[in-house]
Amino acid sequence: MTMVWVVYDIAKNRARSHVSRICQDKGLYRVQKSVFLGNLNANERDSLALECEQEIDPKVDSVYVFPMDDDSFKKVKLLGQAFDRKLVSDELLTKFF
């Protein structure tokens, strides 16, 4: 499992809602309106990318999937209304299918 950031900028509400749902269905935690974070294995990352690709218009939309190792995640600076790091780094985050 690898920590993954998913960041997107999607023009149409319907596509944006679908990408948000895909991220949630993969067990990712929403840290901002268009930013998700969580642990995924390689197959889940590939699946997420393929599903998102089907929803977006590549001429105007973008979805970024950034893997991050544990050491780098521990160095993330949380400022202001930051997310709860334990929700995405510990076993507290549970996937429901």
Rank of each mutant, 00 (worst) to 15 (best):
R16D: 00
S62T: 15
F83E: 04
G27I: 03
Y29I: 08
F83C: 10
V7H: 07
K86V: 09
E53I: 02
N41G: 12
S34H: 02
V88P: 07
Y64W: 15
K12D: 15
S17E: 06
I10R: 00
L28D: 05
S20Q: 01
E51H: 06
R30Q: 14
Y29E: 07
V7P: 12
R21E: 06
R14M: 10
L87H: 08
A15K: 02
N13V: 05
V63R: 01
V19T: 01
S47I: 10
C52P: 12
D9H: 02
A82L: 02
Q24E: 14
N41Q: 09
F97K: 15
S47Y: 04
R16F: 00
K77M: 08
L87E: 14
M3W: 08
A42D: 14
V76M: 14
G80D: 09
M68W: 01
D57G: 07
D46Y: 02
R85W: 00
S34D: 09
K86L: 13
Q54C: 10
F73Y: 04
R14K: 14
V65M: 15
L37S: 04
Y29P: 10
H18K: 08
N41S: 08
L79G: 06
C23D: 04
R14C: 05
V63Y: 03
E91A: 15
I10K: 00
Y8N: 04
K33G: 07
F36L: 07
D46L: 06
S89P: 03
R14Y: 04
L48W: 00
F66Y: 12
L28W: 00
D57W: 00
G27P: 06
C52R: 01
V6T: 04
R21G: 04
S72A: 12
I10T: 06
M3I: 13
F36W: 02
E55R: 04
S89I: 01
K74N: 15
S72N: 09
W5T: 06
L78W: 02
C52T: 08
D71K: 09
N39H: 08
K26S: 12
V76A: 14
D9A: 13
